[in-house]
Amino acid sequence: MTGPALPVTVIGGYLGAGKTTLVNHLLRSSGLRLAVMVNEFGALPIDRDLIEAEDEALISISGGCVCCEYGDDMVSALMKITEMAPGLDHILLESSGVAIPGSIMASLLFLDGLRGDGVVVMADAAGIRETAANSYLTDTIQRQLDDADIVVLNKADLVAPEDLAATRTWLRDHVPGTRIVEAEHGKVSPQVLLGAIPLPRQGHKVTGHADALFQSRVLHPAEPVDAIVLARGLAEGDLGLVRAKGYVPKPGGGMSLIQVVGSRWTVEDAGDSHAPGIVCIGLKATFDPAQLERLGQLDPV
C-alpha cells in the first residue's frame, strides 16, 4: 500500500441515537469520497436522493461515495471495500446499536493501509439517560461512551433547555474529559468529525467554519518540535480542542503528521513537501486560543 493510511472513523451509539442521520449529513456536506460500512442493509441506511445505484453488495452514492454492509465479518469487508472503491478519502464504520466501538477499532490493527482515526459516539439527548437507566443496558451505554473520542449529543433541539442541561451534566459525570459536541439532526461539522481540514495536500479551499459552535486556529510552532510531545499536549491538555491536524517539521529534518481526535492522538512520518501548520478546532465554549498560543504562533484559518 502506498500513500497515506486511509482513516477510519467508527460511529457508535445506541439504537435511534442518530448514527444514520449523521452518516447522511456527512455524505451531503463533507465533500470527501466516503465509504460507509453498515452492520446490515436492513432498513436502507442511505437517503434515497443520494443513491445512484444499488446492487446486493454495494450502494453507489453521489460524489463517488459508496455504502456496503459488513455483517459478522468486518475485516474482510474492509479489505474488500478498499479494492472495490479506490480513491477513498475516509471510511465511516457504523456499528450496531449494542456494539462496543473500541473492539471495532482494535480490529483495524490488522489492516495495513487503514488507520483508526477516532470513535464518534452518538448520544440521543432525548433518550440516553432513560436508555442508560435500563438495567439491561447501563453498562453497555457506559462502555460505548467510554470508548468515544467525541460524543455527539444529538437531537438537542428536541428537548427542553433544562433537560438538555441535565443530560449535558449527566454526560460529563459519565465521561469526564471527553469532548462533547451538541447537534441537531446529526449536523456536525465534517471538519470536526472527520478532520476534513483544508490542508494543502488535499487542495480544498480554505473556507473557515460556518458552524457557529466551533472556532479554529492554525498553530505554527516556532521551531522543530517533538511531534509526540506536541500531539499529546494538544490531545490530553485542557485546551478544549476537539480536532487537530497538520504537519510540523521534525528536529532532524522531514516532517510529522499529527492527528488529534478528542483525546486520541497519532503521529506519523511524512515527506518534506507539506506546508507546516496544525489546524486546531475547538468548541467555542471551551476553546481558549490564548492557551494554545503558548505553543507557537497562531493564525486565523
Binding site: D73, M74, V75, I104, A106, F110
Partner: peptide, 18 residues
C-alpha cells in the same frame, strides 16, 4: 484470544470463518 482478534487474523491468512 477474543473474536475481535481471531476474526481479522483468520481472515488475513485465508481462514474461512463462514
Amino acid at each position: 484470544r477474543s473474536p475481535e482478534v481471531m476474526g481479522p487474523a483468520g481472515a488475513k491468512v485465508g481462514f474461512d470463518r463462514g
